[in-house]
């Protein structure tokens, strides 16, 4: 029985997906009965044969893998680095134009400020002279009477 063209269209889709692989029984049956699809199958096989090529040996792939691993991609030949180089140069040019060509001044040296303890090291302490002996406490009121600004308490 002759199948409809809709079926042939569906089978062509299957044959295109099949490429060089072996068709199943249902497809084989259809191919045996349909010269149009048989011709399509022959063309697909021709295309598939034209695409088939020998696989390269592992040596080149290994060399590329090792170059990528060891060089971090820097060993790649010049052309693919064109864009990164171009963008880096452009960035550098913009930065130079923006900040000028003057050399960057050295960072200012801040003076070393000693801590309080260090600053007073070696100086005589004045505190003992300011402390009044207990026996002179009553005379303090006389020395700083009320109204002189010194708190009498």
């Amino acid at each position: 029985m002759r199948e409809s063209s809709t079926d042939c269209r569906r089978i062509e889709r299957e044959l295109a997906a099949l490429a060089g692989a072996q068709p199943d029984e249902a497809l084989e049956r259809h191919l045996a009965a349909c010269p149009g699809c048989r011709d399509y199958r022959a063309r697909i096989l021709h295309l598939s044969a034209g695409m088939r090529r020998e696989l390269p040996g592992p040596a080149l792939a290994l060399a590329l893998a090792r170059a990528a691993r060891d060089g971090g991609g820097l060993s790649r030949r010049g052309t693919p680095l064109l864009w990164p180089l171009f963008s880096a140069s452009l960035t550098a040019a913009v930065l130079i134009l923006h900040f000028g060509l003057a050399p960057t001044p050295a960072p200012r040296q801040e003076p070393q400020v000693p801590s309080g303890a260090e600053a007073h090291r070696g100086l005589p302490s004045v505190e003992p002279e300011l402390a009044l002996p207990e026996a002179l406490a009553p005379y303090e009121r006389l020395a700083f009477p009320t109204g002189t600004g010194r708190d009498p308490s």
């Binding site: 696989l55 390269p56 080149l60 590329l64 990528a68 991609g73």
Partner: peptide, 27 residues
Amino acid sequence: GPMALAIARRMLGNEEHARDAVQEAFL
């Protein structure tokens, strides 16, 4: 690796570009 190289050659149609693509893929 060999299959990757073959695929890249077919995808790009150029040996140099294929090697660059595969090396980038390895990286």
